[in-house]
Design a protein around this nucleic acid. Sequence first.
DNA 1: CTAGGATCTAGAGTCGGCTCTAGGTCAACC
DNA 2: GGTTGACCTAGAGCCGACTCTAGATCCTAG
Lengths: 153, 153
Amino acid sequence: MAEVTTSLSIGQVAERTGLSVHALRFYEHEGLFVNPVQRGSGGRRIYSQDDVDWLTVCIILRASGMPLPALRRYADLVRKGAGNEEERLTVLREHQAHVTTQIGRLTECLDLITFKVGVYEDLLDQGGAADHQCHASSPSTDEEQPPISSASS
Amino acid sequence: MAEVTTSLSIGQVAERTGLSVHALRFYEHEGLFVNPVQRGSGGRRIYSQDDVDWLTVCIILRASGMPLPALRRYADLVRKGAGNEEERLTVLREHQAHVTTQIGRLTECLDLITFKVGVYEDLLDQGGAADHQCHASSPSTDEEQPPISSASS
DNA sequence: CTAGGATCTAGAGTCGGCTCTAGGTCAACC
DNA sequence: GGTTGACCTAGAGCCGACTCTAGATCCTAG
């Protein structure tokens, strides 16, 4: 309960967020901060703990694929203050849907990759070297190991 | 059982893979095909069903974030024919690991986004408009709804 | 014969998201 | 008082993965 307001340099914020100082300046330039970043002696940036908290939110949204324009829209809404919670919720829900479908897509891909890994494992287990490129097709559909055509691997 | 070898134009392949004709030429230029793409009258590309099958594998690997250089390495291995199955397996397993961790990261992000969505839903349900920006922090850690500081949203 | 449409090559342009550079200011230390 | 070292601004550069353009060729249909 000692410090009234933590004040951090750009270097310190970079250190504890993992963003580069370049990225921090870039984000500010792009209007991604909710509160204008304070300036100290000689025009140096001074960040608060709130700024860092906000940045961690940004990092999560970015890491899950939210593009900067969407992040800016969200920041704009928060900056305007209370009263637009529905809109914020809309932004979040849209992104939630994107992330969900992305996870779904990746999971499908993973299934196929895992299937192909299994095929190669079997092939190597048997010590058998097929005389040409072998194919690992979709696990679910009608063909399992196509007898003649299809050489993909 | 009629057609001995399906032969497709670049436009037809674009149509059935979803890749653009530009992308198909680009992929060829980048050495991503296992077999050299055949040419017909006037130097036009002729694709086989095998090419299309291979492309669908490529599309899955790309969709799950495999960069072109890795895809090229894999194509190189397949092109060389039987005997390097361990290496192919290594490439696939590495990518499998990448996809798995990526899904994990996205799932973490999704949890936080879902948490924030929940917070906003509650807030709107109660009809209460907080007098300033409210914060939806991490669901797991020590703070749940910080009493005074931290304004992130 | 001509027009339209698909294709060809080589290479330039685009986009998102930073990253880096150049040239300068400022505070602190020896 | 000279040298770090962190910071400043404005703007250029980079990377991956295409996408697009220009200008030519070729096939088909009318």
